[in-house]
Each structure stands twice: as structure tokens, then as C-alpha cells.
Design a protein around this nucleic acid. Structure first.
Lengths: 217, 217
DNA sequence: TCAGGATTCTATAGATCTATAGAAAAAACG
DNA sequence: CGTTTTTTCTATAGATCTATAGAATCCTGA
């Protein structure tokens, strides 16, 4: 029987990280409890000292993956930065998380649907919070005139998450990718894609070459 | 022993579609050959009349998922439409494919890494082709002045694929989403995010309200 | 109708894998 | 050092699951 001591919690945390790595590599069903135990340096049966089931391990990994995610988003949303800074902060936070706790985040995204309904809906709630806060940031951006008021904030929030997850996946797989560069380019794309054009125009230095290929259609 | 008759190929194709549906729902390792057979209306053992292994079934599903993908992209790239039309066509093709053969495409994206190295690299080659063609379209867009020449075409191509896949996933899960709407908004985002701003400006009707919140930073 | 080929079935070998129970070892503590 | 508590181990029950072999059924064309 496990006991809730300090040392126990630390060991368990270690086990969660191992499970994250294994689930990320092989998927939930493809990974065996033996795989996890081996990586942790114990025998298969001993793993059940820390988790009462493989499924519980998955739950912990998923939670660990997005644990402080929503928290960080909250503090970004609450800050009084202008829209653009908030967007940059969001993208930075999202992508940096992929570098730091890459496996757990990947597991959350790819394997959470194998959790029992209740745990899954808990995670879903967290995800929805995240998206809604992002949506609110966009709505604020529209009100402030930084963004065209024709944009669909729900779509925009999903798009941000989509791009970040897509690049996050690439970042997990290829550690040579320049994180700062990706952050910069993602933010740029999103900013240019959504912002009020006349404002954008003014900020831009003018005087580029100009062609007409696509215009006359 | 299977025989390569016309009827056989049709039946096998049907089996591939069933496998796609099951793999999409449960994942490769989470799905059993019994699941697939049941959906097809035959017994577990009979499935091996069509596939020599579960892995082969996965390979066929993945291939089916992106089969004509590259082909369609080829014809888009070869056409003499302007950049914007090509981008629209790409996004349309990509997202429409998710509606049509949703499961197989999802399986390709999520489960292909469980294939043996050789098959996996075949698929990877197809994927790279796709990305490279998209990249070339962007390069052309830069040359023609439709896009800022500061943009990173590799990044841009990945971003298109990333957004389309992210929304594709949502589309698969929620059939109520308005496909045309998503296509329109994705294209818009990408177009605005990358295009030459002075050109964009000209195309845009002017005279929107204008604020300054984010500018003075 | 019947012969032969095509398709599916039943049954099972053999290899997993999860989870549990109880013994053993290690650590903590007086 | 001896006792208690925490942690790990061994061994295994029981439930899968994949793949194969050979029998049974269905279909087609002479």
C-alpha cells in the first residue's frame, strides 16, 4: 500500500515523466507497463505501487502536460499589455512548453481520448478555458482596433492553437529547430493575418516593389 | 490464398475503409483485428484473406488516406492560376479531403509512425513532395510580388499544412462545422498573413475605423 | 448439375499484457 | 541492533490478441 509521503510523491512524479516519454513514443496502447517500469528502473509489477492502473498513469501524464498551461494563460490574459504583446506571449508560452515538457504535452494531445469519460471531460474543460481566454484576447483586440472587426474570434483562437500544436509537434521531433525563430514567424503570420490593415499599413515601411500578377482576375 | 480478381480488389478496398474507420476511432494498437472484421461483417480470421498482417492493413489505410493527395497538388501547382487561387485551391483540396476520406487521413497523420521503417519512409516521401510543391507555390508568389519577399517559404508551407490538419481534425470530429466557412477563413488568414502589404492595401476598400492601441509601444 | 475455384468459417497455438498477492529487501527509527 | 514501515520483487491468474491451418460454404461456368 502506497503512503502519501514527500519522497513518495517525488518518486511518483518521476514515474509520471517516464510514462510520458513512453506514451509519447509508442502511444498509450502500444506502450506496455513493462516499458514504463523498465525506463524507471523497476520491475513491471512494482509500477502498481505508484499507479492503480495504466489508465491512471495516462491521466496523470495528460494532466501534467497541461498543468500550468491554463495558469500561464490566465496571467497573460489578465495583464494590461496591448493585443500584440499578448499574442506573442501566448505563442511563446505555448511553443516553449513543447520544448520543456514535450512528451507529456504530446501525450495529452494525442492520447487523451483513451481516458474514461470523466477524466477526459475534466481535461476538456481545461482546454476550453484555454481557448476561451485566447478568444477573449482576440475580442479585446477587435474592440481596440488592432484587429479587423470582421474576424471570427473563435476561428482565430483555434487557428492559433492549431499552428502552435503543429509546430510543437515538429519541435518535439526535431530538437534542432530554432524555437525563437518559429515563435517569431508564427506570431508574425497571425498578426498580419488578423490585424487591421490600415494600421498595419502605417506601421510598415513602404516602398517595396509591386507587381500585379494576382490582382487582375 | 487470395487471388487478384476484380471482385477481390473491390472487397479489399471495402476492408481498407473499415480498417480506416476502426483505426481512426481506437488507434492502431487500440484496435483489434476482430474490431475490423466485425465492422466488415466477417469473422476475425477471415480478415487475413485480405491482409497478411494487421500492419499491412495500416499501410494500406495510410496510403489510401493520401493517395490522390499529391496528385491533386501536382495539378494545382502546374496550373497557371495566380498565387491566391492556388492557395485557395490547396486549402480547399486539403480540407475537403478531410470530409471525404476523413478516417484514412486521420490515421495517416496519427498512426503512420507505427509502420515499419520502409513503408513509413515511402509515405514520408509523399508528404515531402506535397510540402515541397506547396513551398514552390509560395516561392512563385514571392517572385510575382504577391507575397512579401521576407517570408520563409518553408515555414509558410508548414503553417498551411498545420492549420489545415488542425482544422481537419476538428472537422472530422464535428460534422456540423461549415466546411466552406473554414476554407474561406483559413485562406484569408494565410493570404493576409503572408502577402505583400501594399498590394493587399490596394485591393482592400479603405475607410475603416482606426485606433492606435497597439501602435505606440 | 457438378467441378473447381473463391471466400469464409472454426479452432487453436503461442505470445502478449494487465493487475494482484505475498515474499523479500531496503530504509527509517527507536 | 531489532522493529516497523516503505519499497521492490517474483510468480501467476486471467484475459486478451495475432496469425495460421484446415474444414466448410458459396459461387461460377461448362
Amino acid at each position: 500500500m502506497p503512503v502519501a509521503t514527500e519522497h513518495y510523491r517525488e518518486q511518483r512524479q518521476q514515474a509520471i515523466r517516464c510514462a510520458a516519454a513512453v506514451f509519447a513514443e509508442k502511444g498509450f496502447h502500444g506502450a506496455s507497463t513493462r516499458d514504463i517500469a523498465e525506463r524507471l528502473g523497476i520491475k513491471q509489477g512494482s509500477l502498481y505501487y505508484y499507479f492503480k492502473s495504466k489508465e491512471e498513469a495516462l491521466g496523470e501524464v495528460c494532466l501534467y502536460g497541461i498543468a500550468d498551461y491554463v495558469e500561464r494563460m490566465k496571467s497573460i490574459a489578465a495583464s494590461d499589455q496591448p493585443f500584440e504583446a499578448k499574442l506573442l506571449a501566448t505563442v511563446t508560452s505555448h511553443l516553449t512548453a513543447y520544448r520543456e515538457r514535450n512528451e507529456a504535452l504530446k501525450v495529452h494531445n494525442d492520447e487523451r481520448l483513451y481516458l474514461p469519460a470523466e477524466k477526459r471531460s475534466n481535461l476538456k474543460r481545461l482546454g476550453s478555458n484555454y481557448r476561451q481566454m485566447l478568444e477573449a484576447i482576440f475580442e479585446e483586440g477587435v474592440r481596440d482596433g488592432a484587429l479587423r472587426n470582421s474576424i471570427d474570434c473563435h476561428f482565430a483562437a483555434q487557428a492559433v492553437i492549431g499552428i502552435c500544436n503543429a509546430w510543437g509537434d515538429l519541435i518535439v521531433r526535431d530538437p534542432d529547430i530554432d524555437l525563437a525563430d518559429v515563435i517569431h514567424k508564427c506570431t508574425d503570420l497571425l498578426l498580419n493575418g488578423f490585424r487591421e490593415r490600415r494600421a498595419a499599413q502605417r506601421k510598415q515601411e513602404t516602398g517595396k516593389k509591386e507587381r500585379t500578377t494576382w490582382q487582375n482576375r
